[in-house]
Design a protein around this nucleic acid. Structure first.
Lengths: 217, 217, 217, 217
DNA sequence: TATGAATGAGTTTTCATTCAT
DNA sequence: AATGAATGAAAACTCATTCAT
């Protein structure tokens, strides 16, 4: 019997352990974003046994959905923070700059997100799914409301802008991100049109979208 | 040794057989878009033996990438056809209408596309990948050129518009499409903000994007 | 989920379970020595699930190499025991008698050995291979040293004699062993020259070899 | 329809085509002696279609057994030639030298032979097997007779010497031959005892054997 | 005779999850 | 709570062989 990790009795301990698992999963996923790490790997990296992981998450997918939720929350917080600061609120450029910075510092967000639709959501319990979607929706609405205030938009419009902004983000990412093994291949000149760097392309596309969206119809 | 299907000797016969396999794969995928059907299923549905499928496609993934390519080609052809008709060329609404119609009639395109990034491309031979991407790029550029002509845009701008249009399409789809089992769940009023139907939402979003994009910067 | 076999928690239990698997594999192989049994068969015969077998052996080949190692070790122990007994040490006939007895009671040794070169070693991890070869070499050298003492031979000569003895053994086996289905066929008189029974032929051949080897060059 | 190779109508043509197939198989096997080439490879290398190969050989194994038979015949011819030359007949060293030279120039003989027991003979039709064994036996007896004359041995003794000689050869080969990937591994000093080069080791072992065998019992 | 399209058997291994300890 | 041993489903792909043309 190997050293059993100290039991987490209090709810704080338990939250900490849960956070350990998430952190381990995140680190592992960052190393190789093209496949979800196995539960065994996550357990080892957390210094826990496989079974213990299942005391904190009902399924493997739940772990990664939690990660995704963290990142979404972070992104929406960023947006909220931006538009709550009166000075910067009105400037789209400043917003895009903040937005891009967040994405750049959370490289796994968009990869995980791409897996969410086709991998994560498949193996997710309906109740887990509901909880995830509900949290997301609520924050989306809240952040949307702040945008509405900043741009004097009708109710619901802010949420809609947010969703479309994120849709463009995720869509462009999936178009422009390639696994390392493709890099050299796509360096050939005939691929130039599908090669603009995501970090340059996205702000331009978003700027265009917002310009159109903020005009009177 | 069951009844052997008539041999495809000529190159036309072979093309037909290849098409049969693709059709079977498409039908199967349409039935359950949340997982790629197995090769055994595809073979059975085509009335062929498993091994025969591998005479026409080197890997299972190649089948689905071929399907995706078909649909992309169809979509771009649609766009091309639209903008090549002088009468309708200038109308964005008419374009969006055609575009949406195509998507509506090819429900598996966007699902497959969502799997492409996270599933298909992982298991795809680099050479198969290259062929797929190259074909796509070329058609993208060609169709882009037609858009450039229709709107009197500078070179490269048409391709860029197309890519961004498709990015928004794919991104919104992934945001708004739910598996059937989620439907009742999301019927609850608290989910209203993330529930607008894709077919309504997308044209609005695209109209906004194009309005912004076609303005002088 | 069928009845789960009692868990092997202690290291003794685990060793016992490992031994169970080996025993099952050996029994199965004895039944049909012309093909390695499948892991599924081994698992069933051990009363375990397939996955459990892989907790004890990393690959199927590792199982059979372990079997081979057991038998080699047994054979070399036999030799060692023989030559460590002062009374019998000098008698070649007595040695051959012991040696033959061991082979007779381990009928799968030479069959497995014949597969080792062409089947097992191909699919074996290089590290597993190294471990196997190293153990073998060490025992070979140790046993060789005992032979050197018994016959007053220079260093290294004992190991060499052993290897050549075994080479002749394996070579003759492969020449003289036939699958049962060949028996009647080879009963025809024209096959008499290649039909001497292995158990008669080998001691004669070994006696000749050792006679020549133990003479001054 | 690609250029169909000229039909082989006469029996000479057919023999030539058969020889082509064998040559192709041999060349392919020499390239990678650790696995039998596929029939498709052999067909391509012979400039024939897969089906055509089956007009000349009933099974894939038959091809390689034919190759083995060729090499055995060659080896026995070599022995025969040696002992039929009065001048060199009595010298064991000269014989060993010729014998080793043949092996050195037919590197696939011993590899194929090692596969014969565990791979080839399994999938061989009993009749094919009989033919192979019969031819071998007859030549073995014939060559044995020549040895008997050269050394004034009783009938049957020559064949026995030959079989034992070959047994030692094959056994040592399997002990001392390693796939290239093992080379560096076995370069470590602890493996020295199992590393003597086959071409040095075999003549010594054979010399010892023959010395013992030719003495009065 | 020659072709090559069609067949289909056959098996290892991974890994999420459970549950006895 | 923690552990880690046990479970078993799931599926792609190869390739020897056949036989219609």
């Amino acid at each position: 019997m190997r050293s059993m990790k100290q039991r987490a009795m209090g709810s704080e301990d338990k939250a900490a352990r849960r956070a350990d698992i998430l952190a381990a999963a995140r680190a592992l996923y960052r190393q190789n974003s093209y496949q979800l790490p196995s539960v065994a790997q996550i357990a080892t990296a957390s210094g826990l046994a496989k079974g213990t992981v299942y005391l904190y998450f009902r399924t493997k997918e739940e772990i990664f959905v939690a990660l995704l939720a963290e990142d979404f929350t972070g992104l929406l917080n960023e947006v909220e923070r931006h538009f709550s600061t009166p000075s910067s609120a009105g400037s789209l450029d400043a917003f895009l700059s903040d937005y891009m910075a967040y994405l750049k510092h959370h490289p796994e967000l968009l990869r995980l997100d791409a897996m969410a639709y086709s991998v994560l959501e498949q193996n997710l319990d309906i109740e887990q799914m509901r909880a995830f979607k509900l949290g997301l929706t609520q924050q989306l609405v809240a952040t949307g409301a702040i945008i509405e205030r900043a741009f004097a938009l009708p109710e619901g419009r802010g949420t809609s802008l947010l969703m479309r902004t994120y849709a463009l983000t995720r869509g462009l990412w999936q178009t422009l991100d390639y696994p390392p093994c493709m890099s050299e291949l796509l360096a050939a000149p005939e691929f130039a049109p599908i090669r603009p760097p995501f970090l340059t392309e996205l702000p331009q596309a978003l700027a265009e979208y917002w310009r159109g969206a903020l005009q009177a119809p």
